[in-house]
């Protein structure tokens, strides 16, 4: 099986038609389905949050069979993720796409679990601590996209599970958990 770094690629990655946008509806639906699964799997394993359409993205080309996706195809596959709520366009011109391999709600649940498992109830952390501190090392929170993290925290704030306040430094915020 072919690999992309430490990511194991599925067998059909070497199937040339996989890289050509199929015009027949049923075939295309199946193709889109397979691309959605692969993009999410890859981003999850590589902790990738954004895909820039105009930059090289390893998954979108296969040097072994010398095939790569056209811009149109990339947009179609990402759009399919957007329609399912698994991705969001970050700009009007669809140049960058935010991949939510966990939905915001799932991230919120993940944070709560993390807090409970590590005994951080009623303690205070900064947003930056959550992203890059020692505490979160080895969890999915390490290296999380800041925007995604803040949105998950805001969702928790609405439910009264955290309180967000301005921290000491100007560009960082404090989070108090009250689970």
């Amino acid at each position: 099986m072919q690999k992309l770094g430490d990511f194991k690629l599925p067998y059909f990655f070497n199937y040339p038609p996989y890289f050509t946008l199929q015009p027949v509806r049923e075939t295309r639906e199946k193709q889109i389905q397979l691309w959605k699964e692969l993009i999410l799997d890859y981003c999850r394993s590589q902790k990738i949050f954004t895909i820039a359409l105009e930059e090289d993205f390893p998954l979108f080309s296969n040097p072994v069979i010398e095939r790569s996706l056209t811009h149109e195809a990339k947009e179609v596959f990402l759009n399919a993720l957007v329609n399912e709520g698994r991705a969001e366009w970050m700009d009007k011109h669809h140049k960058k796409c935010l991949i939510l391999w966990l939905r915001i709600q799932d991230w919120a649940d993940y944070i709560i679990n993390f807090v409970r498992e590590n005994g951080f109830e009623d303690s205070v952390m900064t947003v930056e601590d959550l992203r890059s501190g020692i505490e979160t090392r080895g969890t999915d929170l390490a290296g999380i996209d800041r925007g995604v993290l803040v949105r998950a925290l805001k969702l928790l704030e609405q439910k009264g599970k955290v309180a967000i306040f301005k921290g000491t430094s100007a560009d960082d915020e404090g989070v108090k958990f009250s689970v």
Partner: peptide
């Protein structure tokens, strides 16, 4: 199903339905 590449326009047997999504 089709494969469009710099090598030209070719057709392959359709495997998409054989794959478990």
């Amino acid at each position: 199903c089709r494969d469009v590449s710099p090598d030209g326009f070719r057709f392959y047997i359709n495997l998409f339905n054989e794959i478990d999504s």
